[in-house]
């Protein structure tokens, strides 16, 4: 029998839209503004989810594919990437054919050194963004689902200690992304988004009971699935559970 089409929201949401939301959250100053940008994205996701799955029962789709990129420090399903700034720096120097003793290569390798007035000292992703900007595609084409698939491949290749395939899967990810998307990808891989918003705030905007359910389960997917509907309270869920 034909497999039912596995329609997921994440397979239809461009990664670029998540990145522009993260960019707005990071750049605006006040907490209410920051949470508004996150809430706008989340509300759109939930409305689209309801429309996409309107005739379906037992839907397992949820905000999890996006939430795990917004809170990468809470990732439990995917193993470590085994990638730090220095490895990324060397990969970009090779990929972009940067002269080894050139200015841009030095910026990437010495990203912790104070330089320039932009105040991006120590922020490898920001420094990489300015190096990548003139050299990256202007239009990204990955969906959130595809980004998660590439990150799965990177984590699996790292676990298999296959450096060659790890580099290959990382290249597939970055060569299909704009400089802005790569800035956020780097932060997701390094697991520090520098959003200026706490995990608690993200949880409280997602659902009043999300922080508590995560404390009990430490399972981000379970939090996103069981509290997908903001009108469902944790007590309802626990009754359903037992």
């Amino acid at each position: 029998a034909a497999q039912p089409s596995k329609k997921t929201v994440a397979s239809r949401v461009p990664f670029a839209d998540l990145c522009s939301t993260l960019e707005r959250i990071q750049t605006c100053k006040s907490r209410p503004e920051k949470t508004k940008h996150f809430k706008d994205f989340l509300d759109s996701w939930r409305k689209f989810h309801d429309a996409l799955h309107q005739k379906e029962k037992d839907v397992t789709d949820s905000f999890y594919p996006a939430m795990r990129l917004i809170l990468p420090q809470l990732e439990r399903e995917r193993m470590a990437y085994g990638i730090k700034e220095t490895m990324l720096a060397k990969l970009y120097i090779e990929l972009l054919n940067l002269p080894k003793d050139g200015k841009d290569a030095a910026k990437l390798l010495n990203y912790r050194m104070p330089a320039g007035s932009r105040g991006d000292t120590g922020d490898f992703a920001m420094i990489a963004y300015f190096v990548l900007k003139p050299r990256s595609p202007k239009q990204g084409r990955l969906t959130i689902e595809q980004v998660n698939e590439h990150l799965d491949a990177i984590a699996n290749n790292n676990a298999a200690k296959n450096k060659g395939l790890l580099k290959k899967s990382l290249l597939q990810l970055i060569t299909q992304s704009t400089a802005l998307e790569q800035k956020w990808l780097i932060r997701m891989i390094i697991k520090d988004l520098k959003l200026g918003v706490s995990q608690q705030t993200i949880f409280s905007v997602f659902h009043p009971d999300a922080a508590e359910l995560h404390n009990v389960t430490t399972d981000l997917e379970k939090v996103c699935r069981q509290l997908h509907d903001p009108s469902v309270s944790l007590s309802d869920v626990s009754i359903m559970l037992f």
Binding site: S20, F48, L52
Partner: peptide, 16 residues
């Protein structure tokens, strides 16, 4: 996919 809803009908992303 004709009747499948579209993401850009739910999320307006003014380019940065």
């Amino acid at each position: 996919d004709a009747d499948v809803p579209r993401w850009d009908a739910f999320f307006k992303c003014n380019k940065l």
